[in-house]
C-alpha cells in the first residue's frame, strides 16, 4: 500500500518556483530517503505534506487523504521532526515532550522514558539552555515515543554526535521492523545509504532520480584501483573512463557501467597484478548529478 503519494506537485512563492512537478511515492513499511542540496525543495515538499504550506498545483496524499483538507486526521498518525527545532525557552524539555505527545494523541510512556535514557537527555532543563543537538533530541524523543504510522524526518541528525546518530538509526530500524514507514530527508549520504530502501534525489524543485540504491548504481560508475606490470599510457582517453589518477603506485579511475567490458579488456592487456573495485557510493551518484551544472564543485574522490 502506498502511504505518501504526490503527483505533479508544484509550489510557487510569488514568482519563484520552489517545486516544479514533484512525483514521489512512499510505500508501506519502507524507509524513503529524500536527498538534495539546500534550497532544492526538500523542506518545501515536507511542509506541503504536513499541510503547513498549500500546494500551488498538483496533488499530495497521505494514507489516501488530502494533505491540506484532512491535515488534522492525517497528523494523528504521523510524527514529524524538523531540522531546525525552535522551542519555547522557558519550558523544560520534559514539558515540551509531554505537550507534543498530548497534542498528537497516543504515546508510549515506557518508550518515552527509554528514549530519554538512550539519547542521554536531561528533561528537567529549560529549552533555552539546550544546544542544537539537544533540542533535536527533544523532537526525536517526542516523535519516536509516539505510535505513529509514518515518520517524517527533515534532516533530523544535523546536530547530533556520532553516538547519538547511531541511536537515531536504531530508532529508524525499529520503526521499520514494526512495519512503519519513514520519509527521511538528509544531507548525510552515508546515513541515507545505511537506512533507506529507496531514494529520491531532488534538484531545483524536480525529482531527477529515484529508485533503490542498487537500481541507481546501474546508472553510474564503478571505482577501480589497479596495478599492472607495464604502465597504461592511454587509459584516460578510453571511452567511459573518468577521473584517472595515480596513488602510491596504483592507478585509480572510474568507469561508466555500460563501458565496463571494453575497459576491462583493454586494461588486462597490460598484465594486471592487483585489482580492487568499489561500488559507487551515494555521494558519487549525487555528485554526478550536480557536477553537470557546476564543474567547480569538484569531482568525487
Amino acid at each position: 500500500m502506498t502511504i505518501v503519494t504526490t503527483k505533479a506537485l508544484s509550489k510557487k512563492f510569488g514568482k519563484v518556483t520552489a517545486l516544479d512537478g514533484v512525483d514521489l511515492n512512499v510505500e508501506e513499511g519502507e524507509v524513503y530517503g529524500f536527498i538534495g542540496p539546500n534550497g532544492a525543495g526538500k523542506s518545501t515538499t515536507i511542509r506541503i505534506l504536513l499541510g503547513i504550506l498549500q500546494a500551488t498545483s498538483g496533488s499530495a496524499q497521505i494514507f489516501g487523504k488530502d494533505v491540506w483538507q484532512d491535515a488534522v486526521e492525517i497528523h494523528k498518525r504521523i510524527a514529524y521532526v524538523p531540522g531546525d527545532v525552535n522551542l519555547w525557552e522557558n519550558l523544560t524539555g520534559g514539558e515540551v515532550i509531554d505537550l507534543f505527545s498530548k497534542l498528537r494523541g497516543k504515546t508510549n510512556q515506557k518508550k518515552k522514558e527509554r528514549l530519554i535514557e538512550q539519547f542521554q537527555l536531561d528533561p528537567s532543563k529549560k529549552c533555552g539552555t539546550y544546544s542544537k543537538g539537544n533540542r533535536q533530541k527533544i523532537a526525536l524523543v517526542a516523535a519516536f515515543a509516539s505510535e505513529a504510522d509514518l515518520y517524517i524526518l527533515d534532516e533530523p541528525t544535523s546536530g547530533l554526535d556520532p553516538l547519538m546518530e547511531r541511536v537515531f538509526q536504531e530508532c529508524v530500524h525499529e520503526a521499520k521492523r514494526n512495519g512503519k514507514s519513514v520519509l527521511l530527508s538528509s544531507h548525510i549520504l552515508s546515513e541515507v545509504e545505511r537506512l533507506c530502501d529507496r531514494i529520491g534525489i531532488i534538484r531545483q524543485g524536480k525529482i531527477i532520480e529515484s529508485g533503490s540504491l542498487s537500481e541507481m548504481r546501474h546508472l553510474t560508475r564503478s571505482h577501480f584501483f589497479v596495478e599492472t606490470k607495464s604502465s597504461i599510457p592511454e587509459l584516460g582517453s578510453q571511452k567511459g573512463v573518468h577521473d584517472v589518477r595515480e596513488e602510491e603506485g596504483k592507478l585509480g579511475f572510474q568507469v561508466d557501467t555500460e563501458n565496463l567490458d571494453q575497459v576491462m579488456q583493454y586494461v588486462s592487456k597490460f598484465g594486471i597484478t592487483k585489482l580492487e573495485s568499489k561500488s559507487p557510493t551515494l555521494e558519487d551518484l549525487f555528485m554526478r548529478h550536480y557536477e553537470k551544472d557546476s564543474p567547480n564543485r569538484g569531482a568525487s574522490s
Binding site: 511542509r47 491535515a71 497528523h75 525552535n86 497534542l103
Partner: peptide
Amino acid sequence: KKGRTEHLISRSVSK
C-alpha cells in the same frame, strides 16, 4: 515566524 506553530499544526491541532 519562529517556526513554533509548526510543532502544533504538524500534530493533531487544526489551524
